[in-house]
């Protein structure tokens, strides 16, 4: 699988800020190594733009190894591009043919306003987390011993799979309803599956769902697109669990 180089055409969304109108711009880029990641390709484009004294393309990125959740991008109509189980930083140029035209857009969702070019504001996710995505335990050094509560491996593994969500927002961007149910479902599930999370389960489900609605995310109609595009393979089961937790909470809550 020796690396080769390809020439590509890019159609990239440019938008000065959240108040201005954006448009697609066309760029050609030559000698892109197929061993490069998609973001390294954008670095290469930006280097070319800077050398031509043009404004480089703004995009979010940080860890470049698929775990921080900062990179985004809608590539050829797919969140994180044409590969499965990867973030954009893990997408490699070997996925594209020589001479290809590649469309690059920001996440599109009412709850994720564009900051600039391909950068969007996902702080709504933080606010949902602040509404209930935690166990209320203070730092003390005097909690009980970590092995005091055995947790069945299966439950621990499922909780971990839900907790593997990186908060990138691909689920929202790819959902025709702009729903954040996969994100919220994953967090609610993680705690619902563990004994530590049970005490506050009712309040958590109600508060997180309320905040999710307040932020303007749409509802879930079970199309399943989110699961397909999730780079971490978060399962739709988590949405089902969220629905159960929310229903249970609504029934038992006296608020």
């Amino acid at each position: 699988m020796a690396a080769k180089t390809i020439n590509i055409t890019l159609k990239i969304w440019r938008q000065k800020n959240c108040n201005s109108k954006g448009n697609m711009e066309t760029y050609t880029l030559n000698d892109v190594s197929t061993a490069s990641s998609f973001l390294e390709m954008l670095d290469q484009l930006n280097e070319q733009l800077i050398n031509d004294k043009k404004e480089p393309v703004a995009f979010d990125h940080d860890c470049r190894e698929g775990i921080c959740g900062m990179c985004s991008l809608y590539i050829n109509g797919r969140a994180h591009g044409p590969d499965n189980g990867v973030t954009t930083c893990q997408l490699h140029m070997r996925m594209f043919e020589d001479g290809a035209t590649i469309y690059v857009e920001p996440w599109r969702s009412a709850a994720f306003p564009v900051v600039k070019d391909l950068v969007v504001d996902r702080s709504a996710f933080d606010r949902i987390q602040q509404a209930g995505g935690f166990v209320s335990v203070n730092t003390s050094g005097r909690t009980m011993d970590a092995n005091a509560i055995p947790i069945p491996k299966e439950d621990a593994d499922k909780a971990f799979e839900a907790a593997a969500c990186i908060g990138c927002g691909a689920c929202v961007a790819t959902c025709k309803n702009g729903s954040a149910m996969l994100f919220v479902g994953a967090k609610v599930s993680q705690y619902a599956l563990l004994p530590q999370g049970k005490v506050e389960a009712t309040q958590r489900a109600l508060n997180m769902v309320r905040q999710m609605d307040d932020e303007g995310f749409g509802n879930c109609t079970n199309t399943g697109a989110c699961e397909i595009e999730c780079p971490k393979g978060i399962s739709l089961d988590n949405i089902a669990r969220l629905n159960r937790e929310f229903l249970k909470a609504s029934l038992v809550s006296n608020k």
């Binding site: 003390s140 909690t143 011993d145 055995p150 593994d157 907790a163 993680q190 530590q196």
Partner: peptide, 13 residues
């Protein structure tokens, strides 16, 4: 480790 488990960190078991 105690603190993290109390927070709901899903360590391998």
């Amino acid at each position: 480790i105690d603190q993290c488990v109390a927070q709901g960190v899903p360590f391998a078991r």
